[in-house]
Amino acid sequence: MKDTYPILKRELRSYFTSPLAYVILVVFQVLSAMFFFLNLKGFLQLQFDPNFQLLREQLNLNNAIVVPYFHTLSIVLLFIIPLITMRLITDERKSHTAELLFTSPINLSSIIVGKYLAALILLIIMLLLSSLNILVLTLHGNPDLGYVISSYLGLFFLGASFLSIGLFASSVSNSQLVAAVIAFGILLFLWLAGASSDTETSFFGYLSLINHFNNFGKGIIDLKDLTYYISVMFIGLFLAHAALYSERWR
């Protein structure tokens, strides 16, 4: 596994020597800040609502800002992550460096894991930047840090699952655009298929990527949800491995 390090290093460097990483970070940060302030503004306006006293119980900082904020971030991730992963494998084909990688004495899993870790690091940077918004809240209020931490954990696992599906999409395609479309298609399908049913009673409900996030958003870290996300991550990486391995047998 020590072979993953050079792959990871090169991949990260390539994210940050091209404008891609910066554009993604900026777009994600601008969108998350915008949604954050929309929530904040709505919350402030409610304070002047004559019915405010009646709603007071439900309308605290957490329910009005923190929870919807993280929910919005999960949707933004859905759109942005296919753009992070689309180039991971397709670029190696385009620049013919796949031939270098696959004729080097390192195994395929090191290559895949190295690339995956690089994308994960970019995700972590995105999430860290978005926490600046929450930081503003702590200056003048006291949001429940339990909610914040469990939501970030949830976002991390949600994003990590997205990334592994995106990596798989990139491994079966020769073009970045096609890879992004495939990734987005799979994600949206898994998102919508079970969105209206719950994880306990319906198969699609269980499959749904977003359903498992809801608990995290409510401050609940459930082993079942963790198991689900970790399984999706492994399945994505496994499929990418299978796709790249079998490609050369054909």
Binding site: R10, R13, S14, T17, S18, S95, H96, T97, A98, E99, L100
Partner: peptide, 10 residues
């Protein structure tokens, strides 16, 4: 290989 395997951005 026929096309040298180069990372253009490096």
């Amino acid at each position: 290989p026929e096309n040298p395997p180069l990372y253009e951005d490096m």
